[in-house]
């Protein structure tokens, strides 16, 4: 990865606060990442880690009561923090596209697929109906939908879940976006369909040079799709790095714990005890100090209550007081 070039998307110190009746919920607490053209970043985390809010914050689609702040948030030189609503609207769907978990939420049941595909293009580009139609057919074919021309007149409910998600992907690609943000795009689908949709996403982003942020809770998906991985816990990116490094040599105790929790065919012995992460995610309401994972961490020490230094060497970095990620303490060679 070329870290010297200006990234397509640069985020520094993104913070999201939600005022609640019982205090301020610090949902996202100062995350940094860079995304270059053509790169795929997977943000993985459990529910409540703030991963979905992060994607909405980039798109400018947060609820009004959520306070967003950051040192820097730039998309191809455009400051997303100061961008007006109009600017954001013209970016969304044009240069940045979004794919949601449930395809039915992004497709309007009252309009045909063709109408919605063409609308996506004609909203941002001044093209004729014929051209938009041709592009719609071309993209439906590209996402592997057979008899594309005849599908244009169909309504979303006439398609299966997998086909709908393909239509959503085609819709996202209509304007040749430079960045796609996909939030759990395959969670609602069967495993067989999941594999098809993921390979489609990987192929298309590679072929068209599109950058992608893929948000998921599934470590398997991350490993197979990501160039870069960000592991999110309690509103922080606790470990970031190239996929091979994060999975091959996980440094943060949370990442290591997660990987031990899932049965891995071939590695885990069948029927054996699985690893667990005891406890629950701490409340992020009020002042949060030190390492948020310390209440569940097997290696927590007193110093974990203080500010946590960033460790590791770019591009593989992690947040922990233990410089070696406590590998030694777990009886593994460092």
């Amino acid at each position: 990865m070329n870290d010297t070039a200006t990234p397509l998307l640069g985020v520094r110190g993104l913070t999201l606060d939600i005022p609640m009746s019982s205090g301020v919920l610090h949902a996202v607490r100062g995350i940094d990442f860079d995304l270059h053209r053509g790169e795929t970043l997977c943000i993985v985390g459990e529910s409540g880690s703030g991963k979905s809010l992060t994607s909405l914050a980039i798109m400018g689609l947060l609820d009004k009561n959520i306070r967003r702040s950051a040192e820097r948030m730039e998309f191809d030189g455009i400051d997303l923090l100061s961008a007006s609503r109009r600017q954001m609207r013209s970016l969304r769907g044009d240069r940045i596209a979004m794919i949601f978990q449930e395809p039915m939420t992004s497709l309007n049941p009252a309009y045909t697929i063709g109408d919605q595909l063409m609308e996506a293009l004609r909203l941002h580009r001044n093209v004729s109906r014929e051209k938009a139609r041709a592009r719609a057919v071309e993209l439906l074919e590209k996402v592997g939908i057979t008899a594309a021309a005849s599908r244009l007149g169909q309504y979303p409910h006439q398609l299966s879940g997998g086909l709908r998600q393909r239509v959503v992907i085609a819709m996202a690609l209509m304007c040749e976006p430079e960045l796609i943000i996909a939030d759990e795009p395959t969670t609602a689908l069967d495993v067989t369909i999941q594999a098809q949709i993921l390979s489609l996403l990987v192929e298309l982003t590679r072929e068209m040079g599109v950058a992608m942020i893929l948000i998921t809770h599934d470590l398997g998906v991350v490993a197979r799709v990501a160039d870069k991985v960000g592991v999110m816990y309690a509103g922080e990116l606790v470990e970031t790095g190239p996929a091979a490094d994060v999975f091959g040599k996980p440094l943060h105790p949370y990442t290591r714990g997660l990987l031990r929790c899932i049965p891995q065919p071939g590695k885990t012995q069948r029927g054996a005890e699985l690893g667990t992460i005891p406890g629950i995610v701490p409340s992020l309401i009020g002042d949060v100090q030190g390492c948020a994972f310390r209440t569940r961490c097997p290696h927590a020490i007193d110093a974990c209550r203080d500010a946590i230094p960033e460790r590791g060497t770019p591009p593989h970095e992690f947040l922990c007081v233990h410089p070696d990620g406590a590998r030694a303490a777990e009886g593994e060679p460092a």
Partner: peptide, 10 residues
């Protein structure tokens, strides 16, 4: 047993 179960929240 889950050690943090003491936190029956809300």
């Amino acid at each position: 047993a889950d050690p943090l179960l003491e936190e029956i929240t809300g």
